[in-house]
Nucleic acid binder design. Structure first.
Lengths: 132, 132
DNA sequence: GCTTGACCTTCCAGCTACTGGAACCCGTAG
DNA sequence: CTACGGGTTCCAGTAGCTGGAAGGTCAAGC
């Protein structure tokens, strides 16, 4: 299968698929004319990568997950550990964004948003505490 | 003031301060020996940038906010618009992470995490729907 | 046989926002 | 005089692609 088909079936752009090959994730055969030739197993791996990436795993985590995927003797505990670490990371990010959100929405609420220059958002950024 | 002092007072690493100069955000004077020489106003701008960045504004948004900060005739509506756009973006990110979290925690809950190879997380990534 | 167009190839550059490191200069204290 | 803690520039690297240029391949249509 050519890369275009692999792209259609995996949901990854051709550029990304070539990139994944560059960094050693998926290594397809080559036909005589030099075109990449994807097997059904390759497509499965590409789909696997697509799903793992969209679940927020880094490329390096995907590399680990992929090798666990290929390992018939893997221990599910290994997979679970990676997923749990990622879960904790997601929680951290959500908490950070939520606190950001609180701060920013507080500022926005107190800004008139009119044609005058007075602006509590700028004041806060400038370091002048908001009068409440 | 030398860059080290500017760094202490703004909370930004020297490297970052030089970078901000490279991209045209803060332009300090130079002393005879070629050292950067920061005025009190420069420090205020650096602090402003530090706060805006930590609130999640991109460098480009910071550039806009900074020029509004410097503009005595700004309209607070302009600032509010930028802040509201950022707020909407934060909301989008939170929603995305929350949905990711749901999916991933569902998978983690169903994984035994033992020494056997069966793993619903891998199965899901491989595209086999979870039996529930 | 020739052209057109859609495909494929490689390689180089750019994106965000820094960060690390090398090689070198400046100023002061011992 | 030398050491040391500043400062300077410039180059390269990080993550994960993405865009674009220059060129090879293949099937269809005339």
């Amino acid at each position: 299968m050519n890369i275009g088909i692999a792209s259609d079936r995996s949901g990854l752009p051709p550029k990304t698929i070539r990139y994944y090959e560059d960094i050693g994730l998926v290594r397809p055969d080559r036909t005589d004319n030099g075109y990449r030739d994807y097997s059904v197993a390759d497509i499965h791996e590409l789909r696997f990568l697509q799903r793992a990436r969209s679940l927020g795993f880094s490329v390096d985590e995907c590399r680990q997950l992929l090798s666990l995927y290929q390992d018939r003797n893997r221990e599910s505990a290994d997979v679970k550990a990676i997923a749990e670490a990622k879960l904790a990371e997601i929680d951290r990010k959500i908490a950070e964004l939520a606190s950001l959100r609180r701060l920013l929405s507080h500022l926005v609420e107190h800004c008139q948003g009119d044609d005058r220059p007075d602006c509590p958002i700028i004041d806060e950024l400038a370091g002048e505490r908001m009068a409440r």
